[in-house]
Computed example of a mutant assay.
Amino acid sequence: MKKTLISLFALLLATQVTFSQTTPEQQEIINLSKTKWQWMADKEADKLAELFDDKSVFVHMGGSWGKQREVDIIRSGGIWYKQADIHEVSVEIIDNTAILLNRITLVAEVGGREVTNPFEVTEVYIKKADGWKLGSLSFTRLMTPGGQ
């Protein structure tokens, strides 16, 4: 009985490890997303402008807009993405499109006021000839206690 339980536990552990592994391409997207969050915190508007596709869209709690407005808002400090604490991340790749989901706690300064919100963030990346470009960034505020 003891051997059976140990074998079952080992099998379950191996299954968990298998499901949590990412492919090199998925890891590339995860790393790109982390870099993007750092650039947002550092207000690196020029680097973000290179990452954002010209047709990209951004959905926030206060509205939606395109690349130029997002870059201008970051450059001016209208929204300062100070810190994104990432709690969970997943990536699905479909052909030349990567869909990344981040469950985060975001500390931001909006209009000179610091706010902290739990979000599920959807990032859509498109693989182009010159690399991955961000096509969409959408923030969905979580309403559950603690954002979990």
Rank of each mutant, 00 (worst) to 15 (best):
E114D: 14
S90A: 14
I126G: 08
Q27M: 05
W65Q: 00
W37P: 05
S20W: 10
M1F: 09
G111F: 08
L134H: 02
K34S: 07
L106W: 04
I99Q: 11
W65R: 02
W132Q: 01
E44D: 09
P118L: 10
E92C: 11
W65P: 00
T105V: 14
G78C: 07
E25W: 00
L13G: 09
I94M: 13
Q148N: 14
V89T: 14
L100G: 03
S56W: 03
R113F: 15
I126L: 15
E70W: 06
L142F: 02
V110N: 08
K133M: 04
S20D: 07
Q68I: 06
E44I: 00
T35K: 14
D46E: 06
T97C: 09
I94F: 15
G131W: 01
V91N: 00
D42W: 01
G77D: 00
L5W: 05
E50Y: 06
G63H: 00
I73K: 11
D46T: 04
N31S: 09
H87A: 15
G62V: 14
E88V: 12
L5D: 00
T35P: 03
G66Q: 01
A45L: 00
L5V: 02
L137D: 01
E28Y: 05
N96L: 13
P24N: 04
D54E: 14
L48E: 05
Q68S: 08
F9S: 06
G63E: 07
N31H: 12
S33G: 08
Y81Q: 11
K55C: 14
E92S: 13
L137H: 06
A14P: 11
R103W: 12
G131K: 02
R141D: 06
R141N: 07
A10Q: 12
V124W: 04
F19I: 15
N102H: 11
Q16M: 13
S64Q: 10
D95E: 15
T18Q: 14
K3F: 08
A10Y: 13
E114P: 11
M1V: 08
E28G: 01
I104W: 01
T23A: 07
Q68T: 10
E120M: 11
A14G: 15
G111S: 09
I74Q: 02
A45V: 00
V110C: 04
A108D: 06
K36V: 09
I93F: 03
F58N: 04
